[in-house]
Simulated assay, not measured.
Amino acid sequence: MNLVKKISTIVVIAAISISCDGKKKEGETTDVATDTTEVVADTTKVETASTIVDVALGNPDFSTLVAAVKAAGLVETLSSEGPFTVFAPTNAAFDKLPAGAVDSLLKPENLEKLKGLLTYHVVAGKFDAAAVTEAITKGKGKFTVTTVQGGKIDLGLKDGKVTLTDANGKTSTVVIADVAASNGVIHAIDSVVMPK
Rank of each mutant, 00 (worst) to 15 (best):
L105E: 12
L105R: 08
L106H: 07
L106C: 07
K107T: 15
N110M: 12
N110Y: 10
N110I: 12
L111D: 14
K115I: 09
L117Q: 10
L118S: 05
L118G: 04
T119A: 06
H121I: 07
V122N: 05
V122H: 08
V123S: 03
V123F: 05
V123N: 08
A124S: 15
A124H: 02
G125K: 08
G125P: 10
G125Y: 09
K126F: 01
D128L: 02
A129S: 15
A129N: 11
A130C: 01
A131P: 01
V132I: 15
V132S: 00
V132T: 08
T133S: 10
T133H: 00
E134S: 14
A135L: 04
I136N: 01
I136R: 01
K138F: 00
K138V: 09
G139Y: 08
F143V: 03
T144D: 06
T146A: 09
T146N: 12
T146D: 11
T147E: 03
V148D: 02
G150N: 11
G151N: 11
G151P: 11
G151T: 08
K152C: 00
K152P: 00
I153K: 07
I153D: 03
D154C: 04
D154L: 03
D154I: 06
D154M: 03
L157E: 12
K158H: 03
K161W: 01
K161N: 15
V162E: 04
T163E: 04
L164K: 08
L164P: 11
L164Y: 10
T165A: 01
T165I: 07
D166C: 09
D166N: 14
A167G: 10
G169R: 05
G169K: 05
S172V: 08
T173Y: 10
V175K: 09
V175R: 07
A177R: 06
D178H: 08
V179A: 12
A180G: 03
A180T: 15
A181P: 13
S182R: 09
N183L: 11
N183K: 10
